[in-house]
Design a protein around this nucleic acid. Structure first.
Lengths: 245, 245
DNA sequence: CGAGCGCTTGACCGGCGTCAACACCCGTGG
DNA sequence: CCACGGGTGTTGACGCCGGTCAAGCGCTCG
């Protein structure tokens, strides 16, 4: 019987985490349709969808898929936040990006039928899953989806480069400030979201204590203000000084 | 009369750097065709190409295109190395990736007709440029190109995540060692390429002095050995210790 | 052969990591 | 209702890695 450690000696915590199937979608009446892959599809395109598009709910810390796993489909994030996690050869975990409502999760599966990173819900999240077969068929037969797909690829690549160029460069102060600005609510730009300090460290290549110290400093100096008692939501008070630190 | 500084006060060096047109391609007889976008095209596909595919040579430090520039086409790197550079809001330059023979440069232009990063030759490099119109037409009409394109997008995204997860994480030692392994020759895996120390710093988020020190340490401890006197080519002597540093 | 640029090396310092104690929030059970 | 306990966030003391500043070296090219 194998013990609960990997060959590298890291503990494996056997967590069972809930995810739940929530029925199939009628994409025509999707609430966030203007943001997503199917935004421009017409009635004829929808008629070519011959596999069900399922909806799922994931609890915080639930795993959508793991690195290297065989792919069933591409996810669209309807609500919540999902982190993409890579594990390095020596066992450290790195968060390469955070996806939010409207983002596509697992695009890479279109090319390889495997996922390149692990995807984990950071808060309770709802997604829909489009089977690979549907996407392969439509991307060849609907120029409208074809264009959208291209835009999603481009957005994913730009996001990846942004995370590297903006959030993993410079002092601890600059990184935390940069994350605060990047994670602003789309609809309320003076509010922003932070995460568990260890997660923030994995995003910014900092230790959790350093993250905590920098956040405290930003609060002390009046650039941001906590909106809850658990350190997740903050109000941005001085955008200018956050930018030019 | 504008001075030679930007609004942020950084000097602008007015360098004129050579690039030269080297004729148009017959892609059917391309020497590296099996690596590139047009690998699987058939005679019918080639018949649909109605704009010339130009070849160019760039000298070291020559700029292929700048960030935000309107795009004419997508480049394929036939020989040499090209760095992708982002400038942050406060004027620092970050190298987000290095492209090598067979890689595609400027894919993002397919979606937006603009380039998202600056591309600069690091050594003298030869490229061919496929006009956007050709790619738009073929990606809709040739399933063979369609599949290749998807693979190139996926590769670009994976590369971006790799740079973040593997090369911008951990100690200076780990980063330099990681770069040595990533930049190994495709055909001679015990040989590898380094770059100007300042460029390496911009890739790894280190200062050039730190890069120099770490390389010296790797040489001193017998993990690598210089193959030239200018610090560009090295032989990998102990791959295992490079990996597990 | 000399000038200049880039690489290396050294000395010193500061920012971030490490280790540890403590505070706070919240769920649980008495 | 309150006492307790665990998990997470905060704060402090200290040490080290990497940044800064500066000098010197070696290669290359005019």
């Amino acid at each position: 019987m194998p013990s609960l450690t990997t060959h590298a000696g890291f503990p494996v915590i056997p967590i069972h985490i809930d995810s739940a199937w929530k029925g199939t979608s009628d994409c025509r009446s999707c609430g966030i349709r203007d943001m997503v892959l199917f935004a421009d599809l017409n009635e004829q395109d929808f008629g070519q969808i011959h596999a069900p598009i399922d909806n799922f709910e994931y609890a915080p810390e639930a795993v959508l898929f793991t690195e290297g796993e065989q792919a069933l489909g591409i996810y669209t994030l309807r609500q919540g936040m999902v982190k993409l996690v890579r594990s390095t050869a020596d066992g450290r975990a790195r968060i390469v990006r955070v996806l939010r409502a409207g983002d596509v999760i697992g695009l890479e599966a279109l090319a390889t039928a495997h996922y390149d990173t692990e995807a984990v819900a950071m808060v309770s999240s709802s997604v829909c899953r489009i089977p690979l077969s549907v996407l392969h068929h439509l991307s060849a037969n609907s120029p409208r989806l074809h264009v959208r797909l291209m835009q999603k690829w481009q957005q994913a690549l730009k996001d990846a480069d942004d995370w590297l160029a903006e959030l993993n460069f410079g002092t601890a102060r600059q990184r935390v400030a940069g994350l605060a600005l990047k994670m602003r609510d789309a609809d309320a730009p003076h509010k922003t979201s932070f995460f568990a300090r260890e997660d923030m460290g994995a995003m910014l290549d900092l230790k959790l204590e350093t993250v905590s110290r920098e956040i405290s400093a930003l609060v002390r100096e009046g650039l941001v203000r906590p909106l809850d008692k658990i350190g997740r939501r903050y109000e941005i008070l001085d955008e200018q000084r956050l930018l030019t630190n």
